[in-house]
């Protein structure tokens, strides 16, 4: 589904990703872990197409398309979804109106007619029940005054509405208490199936208790320096990132 080859990217002339290689197949859950500043969020933002990040080399194939050539909206329409670490507050734009526009814009991209009011409402109701999200949240302006937990639930609700092929969760657990993590993870798990995939970007192992990864990769200094199964996450939790840093530094002869 996603094939990243030697991806190098940076911001404001500073190279942050120094050659990422990663392959994700349908049905898989991958976790990318790493200490602060290792490039986790840069990877998530670069894949989603954020303008301020500059691709300096390498390629990304997403479902047979050259992802890096697509606009952010086309990436989304092709099935890539980024759950933001810090969802943006937009006063004056109702959450429902925003989601309706998004759903219909994606339909338009695929040459489909927009959903009518009834069709959209039916879809909303269904996903609201699935995600356990209340109408009052969706009537409010987008993320404005939402608690951390509400913002993340809203992200996952958008994911449910857009039904992406690949969901990237960027530090979705940051700022959440354990109950909120459980609710958000349940939402993600309900959306998983054999045809889609999830990339969890996180600093801590705790989210991975709920969204259990098939593969864990450690990102350090702009490279994936170690890959393994979910046991690797537990090891990191226990030993901290220092042992990885030491291993890398020894190899590189620092």
């Amino acid at each position: 589904m996603l094939n990243i080859r030697n991806l190098q990217a940076g911001i404001e002339g500073r190279k942050i990703l120094k050659g990422i290689n990663l392959e994700i197949k349908a049905g898989e859950v991958h976790a990318i872990m790493g200490p602060n500043g290792s490039g986790k969020s840069t990877l998530a933002s670069t894949l989603a197409g954020k303008k301020s990040y500059e691709v300096l080399g390498g390629s990304v194939d997403f479902l047979g398309k050259d992802l890096l050539e697509l606009s952010p909206e086309a990436r989304a329409a092709e099935g890539l979804f980024l759950a933001f670490q810090y969802p943006i507050e937009i006063p004056g734009l109702s959450t429902t109106n925003f989601i309706k526009t998004a759903v219909n814009e994606v339909r338009k991209y695929h040459g489909k007619d927009p959903l009518d009011a009834v069709g959209f409402l039916r879809m909303m109701k269904e996903k609201m029940a699935l995600m356990n999200i209340e109408q009052s949240l969706l009537s409010r302006p987008l993320n404005e005054g939402f608690s951390g937990g509400e913002k993340k639930r809203n992200e996952i609700f958008q994911m449910a509405m857009l039904e992406p092929k690949l969901a990237i969760l960027d530090e979705t657990d940051s700022g959440l208490d354990i109950d909120a993590i459980r609710i958000v993870s349940n939402g993600v798990n309900k959306l998983r199936n054999k045809d889609n995939a999830v990339l969890v970007v996180t600093h801590y192992q705790r989210l991975l208790d709920y969204i259990v990864p098939d593969f864990v990769h450690v990102l350090y200094n702009g490279r994936i320096v170690k890959s393994g199964t979910k046991e690797l996450a537990l090891e990191l939790e226990e030993r901290g990132y220092d042992f990885i840093k030491n291993e890398v530094n020894v190899e590189e002869g620092v």
């Binding site: 303008k51 909206e73 989304a76 980024l82 937009i90 526009t101 302006p141």
Partner: peptide, 27 residues
């Protein structure tokens, strides 16, 4: 720009995202 990217990342074309933000500003 952050808000524009947020809307685009949900599949909303740049021009439409632009309009939504202006309309939101006027609300």
């Amino acid at each position: 720009e952050e808000a524009l990217f947020y809307l685009q990342s949900r599949g909303i074309a740049g021009k439409v995202a632009h309009s939504l933000l202006v309309r939101a500003f006027a609300t």
